[in-house]
Structures are given as structure tokens and as C-alpha cells.
């Protein structure tokens, strides 16, 4: 585990769909470095023979409901909170090039 430079933070920001100002980039890099250096404490523990725990309910297996027909959200309700709507669709800026 190492510190995190601003180039890496910029890359991670793009993966996260965030754009950071130069000031934000500097502050986030500095703070993330200090957090990661604290976190590196975990290397003190040998976990070679340990299995991971992703959630506390160790006995839980896949949960399926019965495939019964039930009412679901109407199109109007699903679109009610959309910042932009066109007909029965969410409207977004152009995705592919051309007219």
C-alpha cells in the first residue's frame, strides 16, 4: 500500500465521474494519502488463512421471491422525478455523434 499522487487521484476521479478543480485535487490527494497511510495498519495482520466476510448474515443464501404478477411503478411515477423527460423516456444529452 502506498501514498496516492495527484495523477492517480485524477484517474480515480474520472472513473468515479467526478471532475476536481486544482484546489480540490490538491486537498483530496493530501487527505487521501493520510487516510491510506492510516489504513495500511491492516498489513500488520496475517490473513492468509482467513476467508472474507462481505456481509454479517453468514447463513444467507440467494433470496428469490415467487414469480407472481404484482403491480409495479407506473411509467408516470417512474419518470416523475426525472430532471428531463420526453414522452415516456428519460431525456439525456446526446450520446453518439452525428445528427
Amino acid at each position: 500500500m502506498e501514498s496516492i499522487d495527484s495523477k492517480t487521484v485524477r484517474h480515480v476521479a474520472l472513473l468515479s465521474r467526478l471532475s476536481l478543480s486544482d484546489k480540490e485535487l490538491e486537498a483530496q490527494s493530501r487527505q487521501l494519502t493520510s487516510i491510506l497511510s492510516y489504513i495500511s495498519k491492516l498489513n500488520e495482520i496475517n490473513t492468509d488463512a482467513v476467508s472474507p466476510t462481505s456481509h454479517p448474515l453468514t447463513s444467507l443464501k440467494n433470496v428469490f421471491r415467487k414469480d407472481d404478477l404484482k403491480p409495479s411503478l407506473s411509467t408516470d411515477d417512474a419518470l416523475k422525478n426525472a430532471p428531463a423527460r420526453e414522452g415516456d423516456f428519460f431525456r439525456v444529452p446526446q450520446v453518439i455523434e452525428g445528427k
Binding site: V12, S16, L20, L32, L36
Partner: peptide, 18 residues
């Protein structure tokens, strides 16, 4: 996302993605 999230939310998203 840059205008909508505050500093701490951005930090957690960056840390988690990393």
C-alpha cells in the same frame, strides 16, 4: 456529480473507487 456532491461525499467516492 461534481456540483451535486460535497467534499466528504467526493472523498468517500474517490477512496472507495480506489
Amino acid at each position: 456529480r461534481s456540483e451535486g456532491f460535497g467534499d466528504e461525499a467526493k472523498r468517500r467516492i474517490l477512496l472507495g473507487t480506489y
